[in-house]
């Protein structure tokens, strides 16, 4: 008697099962965005804290956003697209203009003594300002700082600021941040016209 072959298992339905699973994962999958703008909130101050000394007007870059999503920057109506350049000029003050921030010589490791501007950006919005505009303003201001830091990184180290972050060169990043510290102060929102 001839030896009988073991009967072949039909693998045709394997594809069906796999398709079923595939469809399940296709439906449940969400390419969730886990990106965001990291910020730090100021800690609550004890009520008996002495008032901080006033900051000179020339050192403060005032950005106001109203409930109609209009921007008032240093007393002038401005479009969001111009905010970054205005902020960059304010932070850097390349010509040492009288109306832009003062500078103070500071000892910084890696750079030696540098003129660091005493800039502060003050951001105030209305309760009726849209979240989208708020994020755009935050984004433009962050972009202003990042571009200045990037320029400095290229001038001093010959690499982009992002490269320094990627390579985790902490000392260099720290030195750059000392030259252009990100100082964005958010005032309590006002409630004018909703």
């Amino acid at each position: 008697m001839a030896k009988r072959d073991a009967p072949e298992i039909n693998a045709g339905s394997m594809a069906d099962i796999a398709f079923l699973l595939l469809v399940f994962f296709l439906v449940t999958t969400t390419m969730d965005s886990d990106m965001g703008m990291m910020r730090k909130l100021p800690p609550t101050l004890p009520p008996d804290m002495p008032k901080p000394p006033p900051i000179k007007d020339r050192n403060v870059f005032v950005v106001l956003a109203n409930s109609n999503d209009q921007l008032l920057v240093e007393g002038e109506l401005m479009d969001i697209s111009q905010l970054k350049e205005a902020a960059k000029e304010f932070i850097e003050n390349p010509m040492n203009v009288e109306t832009l921030p003062e500078k103070k010589p500071t000892e910084i490791p890696l750079f030696g003594t540098r003129q660091v501007s005493k800039q502060v950006i003050s951001l105030q919005n209305d309760n009726g300002t849209s979240y989208e505009l708020y994020i755009q303003v935050q984004n433009e201001l962050a972009a202003a700082y990042n571009e200045l830091r990037d320029q400095l990184a290229r001038d001093e180290f010959g690499v982009s600021y992002q490269d320094l972050i990627d390579k985790k060169e902490k000392a260099k990043i720290k030195a750059i941040k000392r030259v252009f510290p990100q100082r964005i102060s958010e005032a309590e929102p006002k409630d004018v016209g909703n």
């Binding site: 965005s33 990106m35 730090k40 909130l41 935050q138």
Partner: peptide, 10 residues
Amino acid sequence: SALKISYSTV
């Protein structure tokens, strides 16, 4: 005192 925040964006 939950001071670290992030605004989720695309």
